[in-house]
């Protein structure tokens, strides 16, 4: 552990330096007119805009909408993904029956569904939630399915011999064993849930961060677009950090893992 912290402190410094360096380049580039301000805006302007959005409080309603949609699609998607993953992993026949349809459904580019969902569910939050769910569901479903299938049969047999019922097997062996897989899917799907609902908002909504970005774009306000992106990125990072902590606690039985390599969102 101490070895890891020793190494991660300088790495954090390097990471901050890299970010600061790139931002400064951008700032300088625009200030000295190597880059066109109209197309690229400027980090200081973006920061100012973000600050203003929070100061005036105008961002909160949009942020709340986006987060509600993302949370709903995440929650519904994860729940459905885990349940279906378990069901199909435990029932070979059902898995074989549904296999081609799941492949087809997963191969569809989700973006093309957005207009259809708009028609079906209207301009409100549910069309975005539906879009988010289609993304989250498949990621979680495939990982859960895989995770349950990869359970060590000896551990299952051992629990059975110790008297486990089918339900107890799920609770004591299958879920903990699949949790590693489910968590790796959570990291990815949180990011994708947010992206999906923002795309949904972008294509047709009256509220949300995606809507503000679309509005800014409509009047060629690059600063507004970047401000929206900045806020989204910050949110994804924050939520990802939360998941990381939860994961570290729930998977504390695993030998030291290298989580630094895993991307968040």
């Amino acid at each position: 552990m101490s070895e890891a912290t020793k190494r991660s402190v300088p790495m954090l410094v390097w990471q901050v330096l890299l970010g600061a360096g790139l931002l400064s380049l951008w700032q300088v580039g625009v200030t000295y007119r190597w880059m066109d301000k109209f197309f690229f805006s400027r980090p200081s302007d973006v920061a100012e805009r973000v600050w203003k959005m929070f100061a005036t409080g105008s961002v909160w309603a949009h942020l709340a909408t986006t987060m509600t949609e993302a949370a709903l699609s995440f929650g519904i998607g994860v729940f459905a993904g885990v349940v279906f993953g378990f069901l199909l992993a435990r029932n070979r026949w059902l898995a074989a029956l549904l296999d081609p349809y799941i492949r087809i459904a997963n191969a569809l580019p989700r973006v093309v569904l957005a207009p259809i969902f708009l028609l079906w569910f209207g301009l409100g939050i549910w069309s975005k939630v539906a879009l988010g769910v289609t993304v989250v569901f498949f990621i979680v479903f495939f990982n859960t399915y895989q995770g349950v299938r990869e359970v060590d049969p000896v551990q299952l047999d051992n629990a059975r011999m110790l008297g486990a019922s089918e339900r107890q097997l799920i609770r004591h062996v299958l879920i903990p064993s699949a949790l590693t897989w489910i968590f790796s899917s959570l990291h990815i799907s949180i990011g994708f849930a947010i992206i999906a609902v923002v795309v949904g908002e972008y294509l047709g909504a009256s509220r949300g961060i995606g809507y503000t970005i679309a509005q800014a774009e409509g009047v060629f306000d690059t600063t507004g677009v970047f401000a929206g992106m900045t806020i989204l990125a910050a949110v994804v990072l924050l939520v990802g950090a939360g998941v990381d902590r939860l994961e570290r606690w729930l998977l504390r039985w695993k030998p030291n893992r290298d989580t630094s390599a895993r991307q968040v969102g």
Partner: peptide, 8 residues
Amino acid sequence: QDALLPWK
């Protein structure tokens, strides 16, 4: 084989 549950 090893059959202890690693998460317990």
